[in-house]
Design a protein around this nucleic acid. Sequence first.
RNA 1: GCGGGCGUGGCGAAAUGGUAGACGCGCAGGAUUUAGGAUCCUGUGGGAUUGACUCCCGUGGAGGUUCGAGUCCUCUCGCCCGCACCA
Length: 817
Amino acid sequence: MKDQYDPHAFEEQWSRRWEAEKIYAAPDDPGKTKRFVMEMFPYPSGDLHMGHVENYTIADAMARYWRMRGFEVMHPMGYDAFGLPAENAAMRRGIHPRQWTMSNIDMMRSSLRRLGYSYDWSREVISCNPDYYRWNQWIFLKFYERGLAYRRTSPVNWCPVDKTVLAREQLSTGVCWRCGSVPEIRDLTQWFLKITDYSDRLLDEMKGLQWSDSILSQQRNWIGRSRGAEVTFKLRLKDSQDLVDFPVFTTRPDTLWGATFFVLAAEHPLAREMVAGTEQEAPFDEFVEEVRRETEVDRMAAKGVRRGFELPAVAVNPVNGEELPVWAADYILMGYGTGAIMAVPAHDQRDFEFARENGLPVRVVVQPEGQTLDPESMNEGYSGPGTLVNSGPFTGTAVDPDTHEGIDKVIEWLSEKGRGTAKVNYRQRDWLVSRQRYWGTPIPIVYCDECGEVPVPYEHLPVLLPDEAEYSSSDDAVSPLANDKDFVNTICPRCGEPASRETDTLDTFFDSSWYFLRYCDPDNDEAPFKTSKVNRWCPVDNYFGGVEHAVMHLIYARFFVKVFQDMGLLSFPEPFLRLFNQGHVSLGGKEMSKSTGNVIEAAAAIDAYGADSARTFILFSSPPAADYDFPLDGFEQIGRVAHSWLSRVWRVLSEVSNGAVPPELDRAVHRTIKAVTDEMEEFGLNTAIARMMELVNDFSKFDGPVPRPAAEAFLKLLAPIAPYLTEELWHRYGNEGSIHLQRWPDYDREKAEADRVVMVVQVNGKVRDRIEVSAEITKDEMTSLAIASERVKAYLNGGEPHKVIAVPPKLVNVVVR
RNA sequence: GCGGGCGUGGCGAAAUGGUAGACGCGCAGGAUUUAGGAUCCUGUGGGAUUGACUCCCGUGGAGGUUCGAGUCCUCUCGCCCGCACCA
C-alpha cells in the first residue's frame, strides 16, 4: 500500500464512476435546503484554459462544500455557443461554424470532466442547438406581443469591400479586420428590446442583491437615472420668422440664465434641414461624415478636438427671450435626451471647452461661496454649489446639484409658466438585438407585402437556421441568410401569399439572458421551462463569474427575469442572489488568449500533474477574488508545488491505524475543522488549504500511522479541493460509498479552542514580554502578571503604570508616561 | 471625464483596530542516498549586537485619531480594471 501518489492511476476511473452513479444529480423538486450554484457558461473558443479553471474550481469547491453541509445542490454547466468567433474561424479555415463550435465543446467538456467538476451533466445546455434557440424565438415573440420588441433604423459599420457588417471586435484598429478598408456607416432597420421600460425596476430592485458595491454602482451608472427638466426653446432660421418648439433636457435648469448657445447632435435631422439648399450644405455633410467616422469611444474621449458646425439659426431662451447661436457638434449624442442641449459653458466642462475653442461667450450665473468667478479668467466650468446671480427672479437663490437644493424651485416656476416640465432621463438606451450574422438565432418574423410585419406562429417554431447557407455575405444583401432563397422565401402566415423572412439573427446576449432557467428544465419541449421547476430552484443562489460582465450580461438577465415575472412565467424579481467575482488569471502580465497563443491550457496542466494538483495550485496560489499572474516560466514549478503537497498527504495518510486519537492530535483536528469551516464560509479557499497544510504537518510528526477518525476528518475537509485523491484514500480505508456524499465534519468547540495561550505583554504598544497563561484568564490576573514581569518593571522604573489595557486572553498593554 | 480596485519579504501571500509576514515557494545548512531526483530536519524581513539575551527600523509617501493602525480618517504618489460624456 506504500505506493507512490499517481493521480493518473485513478482519476479517470473515479470520474467515470461518479457519472455512472449520478452522485451529483440534482433532484427535480428540491426542498428548502436547495442551493443553485452556477458559473457563467463559457464561450467554446477552444480548450479550457487556466482562467476557466480558476473560476470553475472556486465554484466547484464551494458547491462540494455546500453539498457536504447538507444542501441539495444544483450545479449545472452549458455552452454559450453562438457568436462571431465561430464565423471568423469558419472563414479562416473553411470549417462550418457548427463543426468548429461542437468540436470545441467536446474538447472543453472533456477537460471539465477530467477536472472532476461536480456537474449534473444531464442538465447541459448548448445554446446553438434548435431545442434551445427555438425558445429564444418563443421568448422574442412573447416580447413582441407585449410591445417590448420593435424595429427602427440604427447605423452599422459596413465594409464596402467584404460586403459585411463589422462588429466592434472586427474594427479594433478602426479599419476592417480582413481587408483593412475604412468602413462606411449604413443605416439599417433593426430590432430593439424595450429595456428602458424597466430602467426604474432595474435600478430600484438592485437593493436586495448581495453583489459587490463595485458592480452595483457600475449598473447604476449604466442606467444613469437623472432628475431634471425638459425646457422648451424656440428655434428660428436666420432668414425666417417661423418659430419651431424644440425641447431639451437639462439637469441644471437653474443655470438657464447662463445659456449662451444651443447645440444639436451632428446627426440630428433638423440640423441637415437647416442647411439644405444653401451653400453650407456640402461642408455640413462633410462635417457629419467626419463625425460619423468617429467611434462613440472617440466622441466620449475626455480631451481632444471637438468638432462643431455653426448653423444658420437662432434659439430663443424661454426664460429671458435671448437669441442664442445654434451649433451642431460631435459631443452631443442623438441617443440621449432629445439630441440637443442648451449650452452653459460657465457651469459645464464640455460646454466650456467647446465655447473656448469656438470663441463663444461664457456667462457666470452660479457664484460659489467665498470666491468670484470671472468668465475672462476661468479655465474650467464650475459645476458645484453656490448662489445664483444674473438669473432674473432667482438671483440670490442657493443651489446645489448634489442635493437638488434650489433646482426644484426653478422647475416648479418653469412648469407654472408653461416653459418646461420636471423630467427624469436615463442614459440607458434600448437594447439592439439584431445582428447581421449567420451564426445566431433567426428572428422569427415574416414580412408580407399585404400584412407587413408578421410574427411566425408559435406552432411553426423553431425557424431553423439553414445548415448549408453561406456564412459570409457575397453581395450587398446585408445578412448572410439573405442569400439563401430557400430560407428567405416563405408564405405569409396571415394571408398565405408569398412573403420573406427576417434574415437577421439575435444578439448572443439574448441566449445568455435566460440559460439558467433552462437548467431547471432542460428537456422541456413544450415551453422554455416549467414555472414550478424554475420557482423551486431559482433564483440562483451563487453565481460565479468575471467582472467583465458587470453591466451588459447581468442587466439583460435581470431584465428578462422581470419581464418573465410580469408574464407570470416565474415568481421572483431577480435572477442572481449572490454574485462572486473571481480574479483574472493572466500569463506573464498579459491576458490569456487563445488567439495570441498566450495560454496555459487545462489539459496540459492535468497531463503534467493530475486534476487534483491543477485544482489545488490554482486555489492555493492566490485568494479567489484576487488577480493572479502566472510567471511565464513558473507553471512547472507552481504545478509541482501542489503535486508535492498532495504526494505528502498521500504518504502521510496512505496507512491509518485503528487506535484512538490521542487528545493532542484530536485537538489539532478539531481546531482545523473549525478553521477550515470558517474559511470556507468566507470563500477563503487559499487560507483553508494553509490550515490543512498545518494539520498535515502535525500528522507527519505523529509517531506511527494516523488514527483513522483523524485521517477521515481531514479527507473530508480536503474533498472539495482534491476530490480524486480523497475519494481514493477513503475507499482504500475500506469505506463504501463516495466521500463526496458524506457530511462535513463537526467540531467540538471546546477541543477547537486552546486551553493555554501565549499572552503578549506590551509597554506603550510595543511587545516586551510573552507569558503562557490559561485561556480563561481574567483582566485583573493579566494586569498583575504584566506588572510583575521583570521586562515590564524595567520600563516602570519603580513607578506605577499610567493605565493598563487588558484584552483577554491574548494581549495586555501597560501604558507608561 | 466617470466608476471601481490595488500598493505588505526575493516570490505567491496571511493578519474581527491587538504579537506584521501564518501557509507555501525560493534560498542556506544538515541528514539520508552509489549519484541525481525525491524525502526528512533546522534556519530564513532589514539592520545593530551577543556565547545566548536583546535593541532599533519596517506594510508606497506625509499627517491625524487611538493605550495600540497594514487595517480607520485627511492629503499625496504610483499601478491596474471597466465604461455608452448625468447635456
